[in-house]
């Protein structure tokens, strides 16, 4: 059985002031959880960029897969937090894992900088392909991951 939870209607997974509970979140502990999660996520992203460096004119696969994987994981996380289990998860799970780890792992600025670099290196088709492919794969990943997680929860709960 899934439970209706406060915040199930939220748009923003990090913090949504339409949800009364999130208006009064304890700021100190939440900020510490977001910072700690951000350090973990950014370190993982940096590690991947070292393992899979993008050379001159090359397609930035590390950033691409980082963003696609992070989008799939937020789809799983938010469905589990919002619809899974009968008891509410610990209040710091969402700030740590969502806003922190996944927010720090994925990056919009590096995505944009990769596009700009490819463009300046004279690789306009690759730049445009990268820009469009990332958006499509990221949105597809969050949708597919959320749908599959929802389906799995319904099966398990009968």
């Amino acid at each position: 059985m899934t439970r209706p939870v406060p915040g199930a209607e939220a748009i923003d997974p990090d913090v949504d002031l339409h949800v009364p509970e999130q208006r009064t979140e304890p700021q100190g502990r939440v900020l510490a959880a977001v910072a700690a999660g951000g350090a973990v996520g950014a370190s993982a992203r940096y590690g991947l960029s070292l393992l899979w460096p993008a050379g001159h004119g090359a397609f930035p696969w590390a950033t691409f897969w980082t963003n696609v994987a992070g989008c799939a994981l937020i789809g799983v996380l938010m469905v589990l937090i919002g619809e899974g289990g009968r008891t509410a998860p610990h209040p710091l799970v969402r700030p740590f894992a969502g806003a922190g780890v996944l927010g720090g792992f994925t990056t919009f600025s590096t995505y944009a900088a990769d596009f700009s670099r490819l463009l300046d290196e004279g690789e306009a088709p690759a730049a445009l392909g990268y820009a469009v492919l990332t958006v499509a794969a990221a949105l597809g990943a969050v949708w597919a991951a959320a749908s599959v997680t929802r389906l799995a929860l319904r099966r398990r709960c009968g």
Binding site: E9, A10, I11, D12, P13, D14, G38, G41, A42, R45, Y46, S49, N67, G70, C71, L73, I74, G75, M78, G98, A99, L102, G103, G104, F105, T106, T107, F108, S109, T110, Y111, A113, T134, A138, L139, A141, V142, W143, A146
Partner: peptide, 28 residues
């Protein structure tokens, strides 16, 4: 570059929140 670019700007910006918000808007 590592401090402000990879660390600060990388963590300041987000693709996961952006894509989840887009999904939520569409679902609603």
């Amino acid at each position: 570059g590592l401090l402000f670019g990879t660390g600060l700007c990388g963590a300041l910006s987000t693709y996961s929140t952006f894509s989840y918000e887009t999904l939520r808007l569409a679902e609603r």
